[in-house]
Write a protein that binds this DNA or RNA. Structure first.
Lengths: 146, 146
DNA sequence: ATCAGTGCAAACGATTTGCACCTCG
DNA sequence: CGAGGTGCAAATCGTTTGCACTGAT
């Protein structure tokens, strides 16, 4: 619990920033600002937190290129995710919004560069990542529709 | 201009619903509720429109499975798109949010079912579509960073 | 010490909802 | 005619901002 941690360099590491970073690092999926906020509140560490601080920190992290801001398909609020070496894609039910994680990323199977990526790079665009979601209807919702 | 149109069946087709449908059909990319609203206001057809009506109509269309609700990567508001046979993917600049349309969809090149899709179908999930975005930095923003 | 980072509360923009009226089928 | 759709205004929700204070370097 008292383990010394090393945080990315280049910015001031306040208690709040550390907490947000820790939550993101231990998360298994993208989290919203409010989820992060609640997560931190549960461990009533010390002092108060403002939700606005969370937003500001997330913005900073994003500018630093440490995290990615996304949204769930069909949902409106934003979720944030640490940029990691590996990532997960999901299938999203358009009816109940349930998310089913996929086991691997189709792009890992594409050994040749895709046409698109080649083209983009020629145009000076640097691709740093991608986002993929399948959508449809889960077994439960399929059942209720029938 | 006075061409008789056929609209999807199953719901009441009011003037407002027709207008929203027409805008979506003539759109070349997903539109937000406000964009649709403005689009309609330009052609001051008849009577007033309420933005809330647009939202309600879009919700109805989505429930009917006629449209898909999405968001642009790194943006927060929602955009809506008619479900069509063909679709476009984009590369999004994380810095300036510029969107570059890609010429074709990588999934069209995958002749074999992906592992994921097989698995999902076995689990009773019906895949009706997908959403893919590449992200990174466009030539202009790359330049400014260097 | 200094300036970036933070808490608080108020502001904001996008989306939703309650209610009385209107219109499609 | 009647159920469902709509306009309007007020409410809600996620996110942002101004300002005075605090804390990391």
């Amino acid at each position: 619990m008292e383990e010394k941690r090393t945080y990315p360099q280049g910015i001031k590491w306040t208690r709040q920033r550390k907490d947000v970073y820790d939550v993101l690092e231990s998360a298994s999926e993208p989290l919203s600002a409010v989820q992060i906020y609640n997560h931190i509140e549960k461990h009533p560490a010390e002092g108060n937190y403002a939700i606005s601080t969370i937003y500001r920190i997330l913005t900073t992290f994003e500018e630093q290129g440490m995290i990615t801001k996304t949204t769930w398909l069909g949902d409106d609020s934003c979720v944030y995710e640490l940029k990691r070496n590996s990532h997960t894609h999901y299938a999203v039910c358009l009816s109940c919004h349930k998310r089913i994680p996929l086991h691997d990323c189709p792009f890992e199977h594409m050994h040749d560069q895709s046409h698109e990526e080649e083209e983009l790079q020629a145009g000076g665009f640097t691709v740093t990542g991608h986002k993929l979601e399948l959508y449809g209807y889960c077994s439960t919702c399929n059942f209720h529709k029938a």
